[in-house]
Amino acid sequence: MSDDWPLFEVFIRSRAGLEHKHVGSVHAADARMAIEHARDVYTRRQEGVSIWVVRSADISASDPEEAEALFEPARDKVYRHPTFYVIPEEVKNL
């Protein structure tokens, strides 16, 4: 008989207005328990207003081997950044 509890990844929103951030993982038999465990482990010092838990097995991640192909092409598209554009000082509100 199994006494194994699967791993869940934990995401906490620490304050209204912020996104959920990954803080670690907990073991639990089910999602309800995972939330209680996450609450007891990760929000003891008032660091939480919202908890998400996801089974670790359900997380899809990008492959670090493909990091170059996934992320490098964005690097040379500097025209996406406002500092690329030179606007004369006298022009306001741009």
Partner: peptide
Amino acid sequence: GRWVREAAAAHAARE
């Protein structure tokens, strides 16, 4: 605690 962990896993499976 083994019987406790097993019970929780069994309950989760049933749910």
